[in-house]
Design a protein around this nucleic acid. Structure first.
Length: 175
DNA sequence: GCCAACGTTGGC
DNA sequence: GCCAACGTTGGC
């Protein structure tokens, strides 16, 4: 199974209006962790996540223990980069963990879990893999060192640097 | 399309 | 529990 988000054959089956309505007005995000989610855009793209709106999307299909453990470590409100693998090879936006790890509905074995994520903000300018590799501050990013891991941790310094490169001020992110 | 990296499987 | 074979990812 693919560590990237696999074909989501039945996305509409998920509850259409997951969760109560969001509180009105922007709120500062209090985030405890930073992550990076990889997805092949022809399977599940940033635009598709944006189209899900506040309901978000269960990040199903992860079949790798490290990636699963990363998801189990996530808290609601954690933020993540959204990376397009294969096509684009660039970080295109920021998403937010909207539900903690829960059993992957597509997994019958009870082994695999997923979190739910929703789109927060797109980058003004996507940050490409080569941009990342060319930046000395990002040499230890998992995207460079553990390229194949589909759900990766990101440090606070890496977070700030990539946001800067993408034209977003992380302090001004609102949910 | 190639192939390096690397996770998983299964024989022993 | 080792490790070779195998499958998959994903950049190039």
């Amino acid at each position: 199974m693919s560590p990237t988000k696999p074909a989501n054959k039945a996305s509409p089956d998920k509850k259409s209006a997951a969760g109560p309505a969001k509180p009105a007005g922007p709120q500062p995000i209090v985030s405890t962790g930073y992550w990076l989610f990889k997805s092949e855009p022809d399977v599940f793209s940033w635009d598709m996540l944006k189209a899900r709106g506040a309901a978000g999307e269960p990040w199903t299909g992860v079949r790798n223990y490290l990636a699963r453990n990363n998801m189990k470590a996530m808290a609601v409100g954690d933020l993540g980069f959204f990376y397009h693998s294969n096509i684009g090879k660039e970080i295109v936006g920021i998403c937010r963990v909207s539900a903690p790890a829960h059993p992957d509905p597509e997994d019958g074995t009870g082994t695999w879990q997923c979190v739910d994520v929703s789109a927060v903000a797109g980058f003004k300018k996507p940050v490409t893999l080569s941009d990342v590799k060319a930046n000395p501050k990002l040499q230890n990013m998992s995207l460079v060192t553990s390229m194949r891991l589909s759900v990766q941790p990101v440090t606070a310094d890496e977070w700030a640097e990539v946001c800067r490169m993408g034209g977003l001020d992380p302090k001004k992110l609102k949910r």
